[in-house]
Write a protein that binds this DNA or RNA. Structure first.
Length: 828
RNA sequence: GCCCGAGUGGCGGAACAGGCAGACGCACAGGACUUAAAAUCCUGCGAGGGUUAAACCUCGUACCGGUUCGACCCCGGUCUCGGGCACCA
């Protein structure tokens, strides 16, 4: 054995051997129980960053540990490889997106391999290749058949820099989550997925996910935004037309003193055309629409409105109230119209004060009497209904239901549930994405491409212009086509799909990645799903994780999968920070994984990143910390070397001893061994506490050093400690463990070895230290045999000089004994 | 504004179930080895007081209060930081 640990040669050596021997290939034919360990696949930007290193180190520990625990582990990797950066590279450097992407994939795969990750590379999935995206297109067609994919004209989010539309989820504080440009609103005809059909189930089944962080579930719950209320129908004066309004407070309907429409509401133009209000209202609407989304949805912006000249009739009391247009009403939510009840809604109160609209109190609190003239804010709580016809005198909560029932009997209202969640806009005016498999025919309209004509392939020899416009629109060979139905002239859809569509089902494709006949075979997907452990950044809490949940449910209803939820357990890892902030090129605080691996080795990098903080928490990068991890691996190497040098027989020494007959140092070492195995096993199995698992391994190494330092030379025990140390460390530092395993003379790969067990009897101490407390403060300690009964322990402690001294001159009120821990004397 | 999460030595972090606060690592200090240095091995390391040295005492888990024999942990309130949602009717 070499005296020094040389990470570089050692790591490449084992990486090559693992690759040559297909060490991590898995199949569905195992007798063992299956375990599906998945990390979020990366966008192939070109280089691994520390966030990736953290993500994939965590996943690799889980996968390797589960393998050693006797599971048939699926641990795959792939590439989320469609997306805008490839097009930007094409514009900037003239490199075609496909070759740019594939080069990046090759480089990043090399970097991943240098980390020593246990992936079954035969299952690699690459979303930008036709053998994958044809099935993305196929799923689109299935959704289309089911009515889950549809096209509509809508006010959508437009990112001027990316030159494409965005889903709601991709707009953060009014700016594009990708490039930061201020998002504009445009009325466009776009493709949507009907995720709202699943809003209720997406919400309800969150309770079936106890293995998800509450934080993520709460975020999804807020995003879905379920609200219970009623839709009430008001009549527009002088017409037969009805104006439906959604409200959560139908109990306040008798207090309506005006009505407000969203600027985009279709009735606005209809009502003002040709009236004296026409000019001023149009100007107002235009002004509202020029505001950016941020400004429009900001609570800071003053509520403004304008009277339309029209009036509407309250179905509850026949009252005639003015109809306004307001800047604070959203056209996409509810019905795009809101009833104004200033006395009982904060926004309405502010609005009514500003425009001097009447305030009518219809709910009175218990103690005080509200007077519209002196009110300074709305009363939004429950109370007793007043001025509310037959409902006056009722508690408002009870009145709410009765009022809706009554309006329902008049045909003027109904209970209604509304969601904040909107349908998922999936079309993108981009080139580098999966083409939407639809053609437009002059006679037949939108016609889906027949399944046997898939994939609709992306042409690879397109030309890019700096305008950012999709080159597909300039490429007649792509868009000129014939109608699959009538054979007539047709134009192909040139929009492509949001990349989140591609990543919404990749975890299913891993179960059967090479299938050319189907997206995946049912028996294989049934065998592997669900994902037992999913690991990734919390930034996907809403976007990817909700889309994937929606896909799983939709595909279940189509009959393609048997599960309702894709990810049984979710671990959201924290960020890797440098000097307190996220590593980024612009801040210049980026540490390159490649350089760290070259300098210290992948095992060191992995060990440090897992040791420095618990996985969910943010992690501060520390070069000195990395050196500490490196030192530890050297320390393990060295003790192994030293033991094997002076005790060559250690390799063959049988792993047996009589616990009862051992001397003290040996018994202590055996206990340390059992403690370490127990601790590491539980930390990995129950809690993913990698940091404390590693510290337990470090403690065992320290214990071995101390034992040896003091002259201990029990070959059987030392051999056992070294063997188990290597096994415990194998998931964390796979190369070093493999090398030491071989040096210890063991057969096969350490990664196929069985996880060590421990001797519970060895954990037992023959002596325990008991603490003497007086009134809860530690006042002394004493070591007693662990066989001593609790009464004896108490007597022993009470008879200590120290105890007598502390009690002297005081009255003992009572004595509390905690077995194996303490005796507390309460005195006065 | 609303909803989550966090706050522990010089630093990263431990403490599984209310029972010895600070495991493990980093940094620092001392010692051994060495001609010397590095590396390595050993030892110490919350603050203050006390002692030749110990023993020992006081304070200490963001802050204020409570429950308890006993609180980093439970309860009430406050502050700070981080995250999410935010005119959703």
């Amino acid at each position: 054995m070499e005296e020094r640990y040389q990470h570089e040669n050692l790591e490449t050596k084992w990486q090559n051997r693992w690759a040559e021997s297909d060490a991590y290939k898995v199949s569905e034919t195992s007798e063992k129980p299956k375990y599906y360990c998945l990390e979020m696949f990366p966008y192939p930007s070109g280089n691994l960053h520390m966030g990736h290193v953290r993500n994939y180190s965590i996943g690799d520990v889980v996968a390797r540990f589960k393998t050693m625990r006797g599971f048939n582990v699926l641990h795959p990797m792939g590439w989320d490889s469609f997306g805008l950066p490839a097009e930007n590279a094409a514009i900037k450097h003239g490199v075609p997106p496909a070759s740019w992407t594939l080069d990046n994939i090759a480089n990043m795969r090399r970097q991943l391999c240098s980390m020593g990750l246990s992936y079954d590379w035969d299952r690699q999935v690459t979303t930008c290749l036709p053998d994958y995206y044809r099935w993305t297109q196929w799923i689109f067609l299935k959704f289309y058949e089911k009515g889950l994919a549809y096209k509509k004209r809508a006010h959508v989010n437009w990112c001027p820099d990316c030159a494409t539309v965005l889903a709601n989820e991709q707009v953060v504080d009014g700016v594009c989550e990708r490039c930061g440009a201020v998002v504009e609103k445009k009325a466009l005809e776009q493709w949507f997925f009907r995720i709202t059909d699943y809003a209720q189930e997406l919400l309800d089944s969150l309770v079936d996910l106890p293995g998800w962080p509450d934080k993520v579930k709460t975020m999804q719950k807020n995003w879905i935004g379920r609200s219970e209320g009623a839709e009430l129908r008001f009549t527009i004066e002088g017409t037969n037309e009805e104006l439906p309004v959604y409200t959560t407070r139908p109990d306040t309907i008798f207090g309506v003193s005006y009505m407000v429409l969203a600027a985009e509401h279709p009735l606005v133009e209809k009502l003002i055309a040709g009236t004296p209000y026409q000019e001023s209202v149009r100007a107002f609407v235009k002004k509202v629409q020029t505001l950016s989304d941020v400004d429009r949805t900001s609570t800071d912006v003053e509520k403004e409105g304008i009277f339309t000249g029209a009036y509407i009739i309250n179905p509850a009391n026949g009252q005639r109230v003015p109809l306004w247009v307001g800047n604070y009403v959203l056209v996409e939510y509810g019905t795009g119209a809101v009833m104004g009840v200033p006395a009982h809604d904060e926004r309405d109160f502010v609005f009514a004060k500003k425009y001097d609209l009447p305030i009518q109190v219809v709910i009175q609190p218990e103690n005080v009497t509200l007077d519209p003239a002196t009110m300074t804010e709305a009363f939004v709580e429950e109370g007793i209904l007043v001025n509310s016809g037959d409902f006056s005198g009722m508690p408002s909560g009870e009145g709410l239901k009765k009022i809706v029932l009554w309006l329902e009997s008049l045909g003027k209202g109904t209970l209604k549930v509304n969601f904040r969640l909107r349908d998922w806009l999936i079309s993108r005016q981009r080139y580098w994405g999966a083409p939407i498999p639809v053609v437009y025919c002059e006679h037949c309209g939108a016609v889906p491409v027949p399944e046997d004509q898939l994939p609709v392939s992306l042409p690879l020899d397109v030309a890019f212009k700096p305008t950012g416009e999709s080159p597909l629109n300039q490429y007649p060979e792509f868009y000129e086509t014939t109608c699959p139905k009538c054979g007539g002239k047709a134009r192909r859809e040139t929009d492509t799909m949001d990349t989140f569509v591609c990543s919404s089902w990749y975890y299913l494709r891993y179960s059967d990645p090479l299938n050319a006949q189907e997206a995946f075979a049912r028996d294989k997907v049934d065998y592997w799903m669900n994902v037992d452990q999913y690991i990734g950044g919390v930034e996907h809490a809403i976007l990817h994780l909700m889309y994937a949940r929606f896909f799983t449910k939709a595909l279940r209803d189509i009959g393609l999968v048997g599960v309702s939820e894709p990810f049984q357990n979710l671990l959201t890892q924290g960020m890797v920070l440098m000097d307190g902030s996220k590593m980024s090129k612009s801040k210049g605080n980026v540490v390159s994984p490649e350089e760290i691996i070259k300098k210290f080795g992948a095992d060191t990098a992995r060990l440090f990143i897992l040791f420095a903080a618990p996985p969910e928490r943010d992690l501060e990068w520390s070069e000195q910390g990395v050196e500490g991890a490196y030192r530890f691996l050297n320390r393990l190497w060295r003790i192994t070397y030293l033991c094997l040098e002076d005790m060559p027989a250690l390799k063959q020494a049988p792993r047996e001893w009589d616990l009862a007959a051992l001397d003290r140092p040996e018994r202590d070492l055996v206990r340390s061994l059992s403690q370490a195995v127990k601790k590491v096993t539980e930390d990995l199995d129950l809690r993913f506490n990698f940091n404390t698992a590693i510290s337990a391994i470090m403690e065992l190494v320290n214990a071995l050093y101390h034992y040896r330092e003091k002259g201990g030379r029990h070959a059987g025990i030392m051999g056992a400690v070294l063997e188990d140390l290597v096994l415990l460390l194998a998931p964390f530092a796979p190369h070093l463990a493999e090398e030491l395993w071989q040096e210890l003379g063991k057969e096969g790969s350490v990664h196929q070895a069985v996880w060590p067990g421990y001797d519970p009897e060895a954990l037992a101490l023959d002596e325990v230290e008991v603490v003497l407390q007086v009134n809860g403060k530690v006042r002394g300690r004493i070591t007693v045999p662990s066989t001593m009964s609790q009464d004896e322990v108490q007597d022993t402690v009470l008879s200590m000089d120290r105890a007598k001294q502390m009690v002297e001159g005081k009255t003992v009120v009572k004595v509390i004994s905690v077995p194996g821990k303490l005796v507390n004397i309460v005195v006065r």
